[in-house]
């Protein structure tokens, strides 16, 4: 039925409209894909060929760039750090944001309005814009070069948006379900654990994917907080490769591909969840 309606709607599209649509889309697609495709094949190109012709496809495809990038970049260590930060932050953010959202939407309190807008203010600041105060505080507390110095800000800066997402979902859980459990003698903590958490699975996935992504691509905090390699992540390691082997960006691009694979997998597996998160108004550049 719906399909039929669309077709009848589409039949009236005037030709110029269709042409303009295709031109804009084609332009945007080429513009989007070409740098990525170029990045992809250049990473398999030997250095001499890049120097000779930057645009052409490789003649002798090679994985040498990848071997070199993995070893010089110490990516094994970087991946472990990135994973630790992303997984721990994601778990903590999911638990804290859902519990706060549950309290805000289902436990009557005159404080809720105040706390909710207090947390909402966090949507206006990012790690980048508060990096100076963050660094000063972390330095004062001796938290630079420590895992906690990264994890605590990661949780704090991801919590506002997560609470906002979680509240819009938990609000829709019928009050009757919670009242029934209360009458059966459960307290709010039990309701949270036994009812709210299991029922919120769809929004938990969205929050988790979204938070994981935000942590994976974060750069400024780890860069500023790490004066040695102990807590460096994939993004920071990657940025430090820039100066090395400066003319061989085949090597640099191989590192870029290595660093981007987890994101590509995340994207292919969870595109819908990422889209939901972004469509609800995550702030980016």
């Amino acid at each position: 039925m719906a399909d039929h309606e669309w077709k009848s709607g589409r039949a009236r599209v005037p030709l110029p409209f269709t042409i303009v649509s295709y031109v804009v889309l084609a332009f945007f697609t080429v513009f989007t894909l070409f740098p990525l495709i170029w990045l992809g094949y250049t990473s398999f190109k030997p250095e001499q060929e890049i120097v000779a012709n930057m645009v052409a496809l490789p003649v002798n495809w090679t994985v040498r760039n990848y071997v070199q990038a993995w070893q010089l970049g110490e990516f094994g260590h970087l991946f472990v750090n990135s994973l630790i930060f992303c997984v721990v932050t994601t778990v903590v953010v999911v638990l804290l944001s859902l519990s706060a959202a549950f309290a805000f939407t289902k436990i009557p309190s005159r404080w809720t309005r105040l706390w909710f807008s207090f947390i909402g203010l966090g949507l206006l600041v990012t790690i980048s814009s508060s990096i100076v105060p963050l660094f000063i505080a972390a330095n004062y507390l001796g938290l630079t070069n420590t895992y906690l110095g990264i994890l605590i800000p990661y949780v704090a800066f991801n919590i506002s948006f997560a609470v906002y997402l979680a509240a819009s979902f938990v609000r829709s859980i019928p009050n009757e379900v919670i009242e029934a459990a209360k009458i059966d003698g459960a307290n709010y903590l039990q309701v949270y654990r036994l009812i709210v958490l299991p029922m919120s699975r769809p929004i938990i996935t969205t929050i988790a994917i979204f938070t994981f992504h935000a942590c994976w691509v974060e750069y400024v905090l780890v860069y500023m907080m790490s004066s040695d390699s102990s807590i460096r992540t994939v993004q920071v390691g990657l940025s430090l490769l820039k100066g090395q082997l400066s003319f061989n960006f085949g090597f640099l691009f191989a590192a870029v591909v290595i660093a981007s694979l987890p994101l590509l997998i995340l994207y292919l597996a969870f595109r819908k969840h990422l889209q939901t998160g972004f469509s609800l108004g995550a702030l980016k550049g």
Binding site: A100, F118, I119, G122, P153, V155, F157, I159, Y188, Y192
Partner: peptide, 16 residues
């Protein structure tokens, strides 16, 4: 309420 909403508010307030 304090137990459920507290941790999020505290960590957010302290860090931001």
């Amino acid at each position: 309420y304090a137990l459920l909403a507290g941790p999020a508010i505290v960590i957010y307030g302290l860090v931001i």
